[in-house]
């Protein structure tokens, strides 16, 4: 089985130096047991960091589907489009 990193490697990105995704309130993630964002995000943008006790956001590989914005059970994710021209740039789509 190929890993998500291998899949994302095939997709073209123009990475911005600013993130377009933010956790609004980190303390909410602490009480969120299921942390579904770490499962349903198709690009594995959200990773639970055991040591730091917070969600790490790998925004660089975001496919801009929007699922985290409405799928977070606490609507705790602030979602914006990347700035114009940045983010995923599909070759096939």
């Amino acid at each position: 089985m190929s890993k998500i990193e291998d899949k994302l490697y095939t997709t073209r990105f123009k990475v911005d130096k600013f993130t377009h995704l933010k956790i609004a309130d980190g303390s909410i993630c602490l009480k969120c047991e299921a942390k579904p964002c770490t499962i349903f995000c198709p690009a594995a943008v959200y990773v639970w960091d055991e040591e730091e006790n917070h969600i790490r956001i790998v925004y660089e590989g975001c496919l801009e589907c929007g699922s985290c914005r409405i799928g977070c059970p606490y609507t705790n994710i602030t979602w914006n489009f990347p700035r114009g021209g940045f983010g995923v740039q599909y070759k096939y789509g």
Binding site: K7, L8, T10, L63
Partner: peptide, 9 residues
């Protein structure tokens, strides 16, 4: 060979 991986609603 996978050439692209995409996601959408």
């Amino acid at each position: 060979q996978t050439k692209e991986y995409v996601a959408h609603w």
